[in-house]
Design a protein around this nucleic acid. Sequence first.
DNA 1: GAGGTTTTGTATCATTTTGTAACAGATCTG
DNA 2: CAGATCTGTTACAAAATGATACAAAACCTC
Lengths: 224, 224
Amino acid sequence: MYVTNPAEYLAKMPVRTLASSGAKTAEARLKAGHYLYFEGDQVDWLYQVTSGVLRLTRLLEDGRRQVIAFGYPGDIVGFPSAGLHHTDCDALVDARLQPYRRSVLENGEGDPKLHHALLQAALCEISAMQDHFMMLGRKSAVEKVASFLCVLSDRVGEDLGEHTQVNLPMSRADIADFLGLTTETISRTFTQLRKSGIIAINNIHTIVVLRPDTLLTLSLGDRN
Amino acid sequence: MYVTNPAEYLAKMPVRTLASSGAKTAEARLKAGHYLYFEGDQVDWLYQVTSGVLRLTRLLEDGRRQVIAFGYPGDIVGFPSAGLHHTDCDALVDARLQPYRRSVLENGEGDPKLHHALLQAALCEISAMQDHFMMLGRKSAVEKVASFLCVLSDRVGEDLGEHTQVNLPMSRADIADFLGLTTETISRTFTQLRKSGIIAINNIHTIVVLRPDTLLTLSLGDRN
DNA sequence: GAGGTTTTGTATCATTTTGTAACAGATCTG
DNA sequence: CAGATCTGTTACAAAATGATACAAAACCTC
């Protein structure tokens, strides 16, 4: 059987920019807390994150929230459906963005290579979201948190020689809304992982993965 | 605030075929229980469902399963990521499928209109999956089941004058794996809806929505 | 249609996760 | 700096869901 790696989510795009050399649109900047677009907005541009971290969210009328994804460097955000945005998007920390015209993706205007690259990014997004389905639908709290940390560690972890340090720019509530849990459960699970010596919590936004192999095992939910 | 309709999932594509008139590829047939492709297979074709119902699934090593989607007439299945399928796909009931070459989507070969239509289907898929994220991550069992029935009722319900009849070709286990629940919870919830007079269960695969408005209210999780 | 197998429904019990609340620690503001 | 306001942690109670067991129904297969 082809083995699904449930921790594949977020490991989507090479960090290299897609922009062709000529006629490049100027990079945009987005300050922490500021919104790039809202649900229902007309889509004119797609954006590739160059630096910083974005947050894509959806709201239910009663206030319940789902964090659809975090946008890390290399990720493309803003794919339209029927020409509209279907999430809100804001920056967790100051971010730089490379904009691409929507028409490049949808009408093939401009560089064909860029059109192809954006299309591939969209297709990649579909498969990445399928991974996250498994996460949301079929994993326990510990497995979810472990998966989340594994992915971030692989993708944006800083090598500390012995261990890997991971910066968490998002709040516990963001993590909870991403994984379909409550903030309390996130806190409890972090504490549990810390007490087991699997991670260390330097400060609220900085954790260190002490035993990556154990964390990975937990994330896969091995009942062995 | 722009109101997210959580029951939007599955309401993806018009049932009309995308195929351009000329040089049309012959329609394919897939018998109930037979597989169209497996996770890891090379993608050569995309398929639009003409009739019947498909099931897209993913497996975890320990046997846990997530039903990614049900493919109803109008839906496109088989979007590649890195050229490969990332789900299994089989037919719940005999199905007819209109195949489109992968290269039409990815390399723009052939009819540009078809290329555009497939691209739009992919983008639509992304937004539909975002809806389902909300479902999996933030909804209770009753809300999930109610949403599921609402969507099916809207999409493929048969008008019985007073009420709407919905055929459920999938098993309780399929519904459970689609909604991130267990079969027992599905059974319990169905019974609960039946006893409340919101639905009637003619037989295992046929339910009737008696009070669509109440079902919709339940699906939205109004705590009013 | 008989006999066996699988699926579904129901009840009970166990576990996980959530809700609540109190408190601690940050961060903000004037 | 002091007070106010978030955010995060922890403990305990409550609720929802899952697991188990078993009976009933549906479905193969011969």
